[in-house]
Structures are given as C-alpha cells and as structure tokens.
Simulated scan of single mutants.
Amino acid sequence: MTRIDDTFARLRAENRKAFVAYIMAGDPDAATTTEVVKGLPGAGVDIIELGLPFTDPMADGPTIQLAGQRALEGGMTLQGTLDIVRDLRDEDNVTPVVLMGYYNPIYSRGVDRFLKEATEAGVDGLIIVDLPPEEDEELCIPAQRAGVNFIRLATPTTDAERLPKVLQNTSGFVYYVSITGITGSGAADAEKVAPEVARIKASTDLPVIVGFGIRTPEASRDIAAVADGCVVGSAIVDRIGRGDAVEDVLAYVRSLSDGAHSA
C-alpha cells in the first residue's frame, strides 16, 4: 500500500471525492514552491502533483510551458524538485506527492539512481507523459518494483482497443484527460466526462481522476461528482505566474477543494 492507495481508501471510507492540485516545481523560485506545497494539504488538497520543469513540454499549454521556463531560468533542477519533496516530508508524511513531467531528465539522471533518490525523498507516484505502455520496461516496471505508483493518462481518443494496454501496468489511479489538446485549453464538461469515466471504470478497479479544463469550484464539484475526484493545474499555475501572494493562491485552492469535496 502506498500513500496514494491509503489516501483513496480513506476517502472511500469517508464517502468523499479526491482533490488533486498541480504546481510547477521552482515557479517562480524554490522557496515559493516549497511554501505553496507545504500549504496545499491545509487547503484541502488530497494529492499533490509537482511538475518537473523541462525544456520541451510538448503536451503542455502556454501557462505550464511558461511556468517551466521560469523555473528553469530560476535554476530549478530534478535534484531541486526532490529537495522540495524532502522539505515537505519534514512536516507531512501523509499527503501523497506525484511527479509529473517528461522522461528525459529522469533518463539523464539514470533510472535506478532516480528511483532510489525519489523514494528516499518521499515521492509516491509518477506521471510521465511521453512514455507509452510499449516502453514500460524503461521506467514503469522499475518504478513499480521500487514501490512507486506509475499513473497513466487516458484520453477521449483512448478507444476500446487501446484502453487495456493503457491500464496494463497502471497503479495508484488513472488520470482521465477530459478534453483533447494541450493543458489549459477548453473546459471540462461533466455530461461528456461521465460516460467516459464509466467506460474506464468498467475495465479497472483503480480510481479515475479527471483533469484539464477545471477552473472554478462549480466545475470542480461537477467533475468530481462523475469521477473519483478531479485535478486542477493550469488555473493554479496561472495565479502563481501572475504573482499572486501565496495566501491568495492557497485560498483559491481551498475554494476548488471545497467544490470537489462537496460532490
């Protein structure tokens, strides 16, 4: 059982949905990220997704691309990201942390070394968007062996033939992308999402969490109501990027988590 598994077990027992928040590590600097990360559990966040800044974030929209650029320009590294997780673990050994990003920084560090350092820092899961199931031996399988959940994305274009492959070695939860396209584009539609979530849940016992296109407490509630929870990323990153005070960012996150938890 990982922290992610424990979290979903607790939420099921409480008959509550999960709220997941994404921010970019190092945006605009390590100190701010650390302050926000430490404040997220108190703002109602059940699982923290921490972005790994990368020079070529092909699946991300302008908001997260710019956040990654700011982080890299500020000197954020993979090691720095792990240090942020380690700082959180000094105060919080319960809230799961998932690293989300691309394979290149991990490959450059070396998979074995990365997994050893990630588990020591307190990382619970990985979402690596450019590693398809056909390449599970690269990182997915070693991560599972190390006790790190490997979380896969499913999309509106993941058809019945492809879905079993996507689910094959997934653990922790399934991240359903509510819209086609890059992060930060469009708006999630609960009526369209509901049958897709049901389709995925018919093939797996894993929780299904829905992300992309959620910006308001109402949207957070509506999407969580038809899934096991929701993820908000770009809308939070946008507020950090425009320079909102940490307490204001966390107040916004609280409004979103209250929405999800009211579903």
Score class of each variant (00 low, 15 high):
residue 239 R to F: 04
residue 234 S to D: 10
residue 37 V to R: 01
residue 109 R to T: 08
residue 231 V to F: 03
residue 166 V to L: 14
residue 107 Y to N: 06
residue 127 I to R: 02
residue 40 L to F: 08
residue 192 K to C: 04
residue 126 L to K: 11
residue 144 Q to N: 12
residue 120 E to Y: 08
residue 132 P to E: 01
residue 15 N to T: 11
residue 184 G to Y: 05
residue 104 N to A: 14
residue 207 P to F: 01
residue 70 R to D: 02
residue 33 T to Q: 11
residue 209 I to C: 12
residue 13 A to Q: 15
residue 198 A to M: 13
residue 8 F to G: 02
residue 217 P to V: 04
residue 29 D to T: 05
residue 60 D to F: 08
residue 39 G to P: 10
residue 262 S to E: 13
residue 14 E to K: 15
residue 142 P to N: 14
residue 202 A to T: 01
residue 47 I to T: 01
residue 45 V to L: 05
residue 87 D to H: 06
residue 128 I to R: 08
residue 49 E to T: 03
residue 207 P to I: 09
residue 112 D to L: 08
residue 42 G to M: 10
residue 256 L to S: 05
residue 197 V to S: 02
residue 62 P to I: 01
residue 101 G to E: 02
residue 149 N to M: 07
residue 59 A to G: 02
residue 148 V to M: 14
residue 186 G to R: 09
residue 209 I to M: 13
residue 87 D to M: 06
residue 181 G to W: 06
residue 14 E to G: 09
residue 232 V to R: 03
residue 100 M to Q: 06
residue 136 D to E: 15
residue 185 S to Q: 15
residue 109 R to E: 03
residue 24 M to W: 03
residue 229 G to K: 02
residue 184 G to F: 07
residue 173 F to N: 01
residue 41 P to G: 14
residue 220 S to K: 05
residue 241 G to P: 06
residue 105 P to S: 13
residue 71 A to L: 12
residue 230 C to S: 14
residue 121 A to V: 08
residue 197 V to D: 11
residue 144 Q to E: 07
residue 138 E to V: 13
residue 36 V to Q: 01
residue 60 D to N: 13
residue 121 A to W: 07
residue 245 A to Q: 06
residue 153 L to Q: 12
residue 66 L to F: 09
residue 92 D to S: 11
residue 226 V to D: 04
residue 170 T to P: 06
residue 187 A to Y: 00
residue 92 D to Q: 07
residue 214 I to T: 06
residue 2 T to P: 04
residue 97 V to C: 06
residue 213 G to I: 11
residue 201 K to F: 12
residue 202 A to W: 01
residue 46 D to K: 09
residue 2 T to A: 08
residue 81 T to A: 05
residue 232 V to D: 05
residue 158 T to L: 04
residue 149 N to V: 03
residue 92 D to P: 06
residue 210 V to N: 04
residue 165 K to R: 12
residue 13 A to W: 10
residue 120 E to A: 15
residue 104 N to T: 14
residue 21 A to Y: 05
residue 50 L to F: 12
residue 5 D to P: 02
residue 175 Y to R: 04
residue 61 G to K: 09
residue 140 C to I: 10
residue 157 T to K: 09
residue 1 M to Y: 05
residue 90 D to C: 00
residue 144 Q to L: 15
residue 181 G to P: 05
residue 123 V to T: 11
residue 118 A to M: 06
residue 66 L to A: 13
residue 208 V to D: 10
residue 82 L to Q: 07
residue 154 A to Q: 00
residue 172 G to K: 01
residue 251 A to M: 01
residue 260 A to D: 03
residue 173 F to E: 00
residue 176 Y to T: 00
residue 171 S to V: 02
residue 77 T to E: 10
residue 77 T to D: 03
residue 68 G to D: 11
residue 160 A to P: 00
residue 78 L to G: 04
residue 72 L to K: 02
residue 65 Q to L: 07
residue 228 D to T: 08
residue 95 T to S: 07
residue 232 V to C: 08
residue 248 D to N: 14
residue 179 I to S: 12
residue 133 P to V: 03
residue 124 D to T: 11
residue 181 G to R: 02
residue 16 R to N: 05
residue 186 G to S: 10
residue 43 A to N: 10
